[in-house]
């Protein structure tokens, strides 16, 4: 039998079952906490820190996606300080690479843009870096533009946990951190990639996209997962 806890979120009493995360309970109760690395169905890494919330009695902030509820918890999901942190994190996600929305395959279908809009970010206070980062377009169906990658690692997790291919990994650290295919092998030469397209589907930004998608089409992928396999099997041209 599941144990039921009662707790408070933003002053309202809510019920939760044992083993639920703060994020899950908040979502169930219609309370919106910004997230980026979290995706329903994948494990959580708590790497983006957007979902940080305050828990009464603790002097540090807690990621809602990985913190399980406990009896009597008193949680604050929105405060001036939290909003300020979230805005700064969002700015850093933009400024760590090169985001030029106007010419991006994900323009207007991008979770990073959504986040900026939600937090009403109309300019960046932090200085720009404009690092020189590459694109790998060696795969016949997909490409990765590291300029748009925010290191949420959803691609890494979906590839390992759902597809079971373990193609994606992470190399380097800090500002030099990159997602890579097969320890740095060009994607097109990957012996493990099954061309399922799941990474493209879960990527929140324009970093992963289907080859041949243009900005004017306004979406970086169109087909559901399986047709990729079918097309590959039939040896069809990618267009």
């Amino acid at each position: 039998m599941t144990t039921v806890h009662t707790l408070r979120i933003d002053g309202a009493d809510v019920a939760a079952s044992d083993g639920q995360s703060i994020l899950a309970v908040a979502t169930e109760n219609g309370i919106d906490i910004p997230t980026m690395c979290h995706l329903d169905g994948l494990s959580d890494t708590a790497s983006c820190r957007l979902c940080l919330v305050e828990v009464a009695g603790s002097n540090k902030l807690t990621p809602a996606c990985t913190t399980l509820v406990t009896e009597g918890m008193d949680i604050t999901t929105t405060s001036e300080q939290l909003t300020e942190y979230r805005r700064t994190i969002t700015e850093m996600l933009f400024l760590e690479r090169n985001h030029i929305c106007a010419i991006c395959v994900a323009n207007n279908h991008c979770e990073l843009q959504d986040l900026a809009e939600k937090l009403q970010i109309d300019h960046f206070e932090l200085p720009v870096i404009n690092p020189s980062v590459g694109i790998d377009a060696s795969h016949p169906l997909f490409a990765i533009d590291h300029n748009r990658c925010i290191m949420c690692q959803r691609c890494v997790r979906v590839c390992a946990e759902i597809e079971g291919a373990f193609t994606w990994g992470v190399m380097g650290s800090g500002i030099a951190e990159r997602v890579v295919t097969d320890m740095g092998t060009p994607w097109g030469e990957s012996p493990t990639c099954t061309s399922c397209g799941k990474c493209v589907q879960v990527c929140p930004t324009g970093a992963l996209f289907e080859n041949g998608r243009s900005i004017a089409e306004g979406s970086k992928a169109q087909r559901p997962f399986l047709p990729f396999l079918k097309r590959l099997g039939e040896g069809l041209e990618q267009t």
Partner: peptide
């Protein structure tokens, strides 16, 4: 008033910055 993305973020003109 910063009017448009080029004024606000440097946008397309900034594509040359990494080069």
């Amino acid at each position: 008033i910063s009017f448009g993305d080029c004024a606000v973020t440097a946008n397309v003109p900034a594509m040359r910055n990494p080069i």
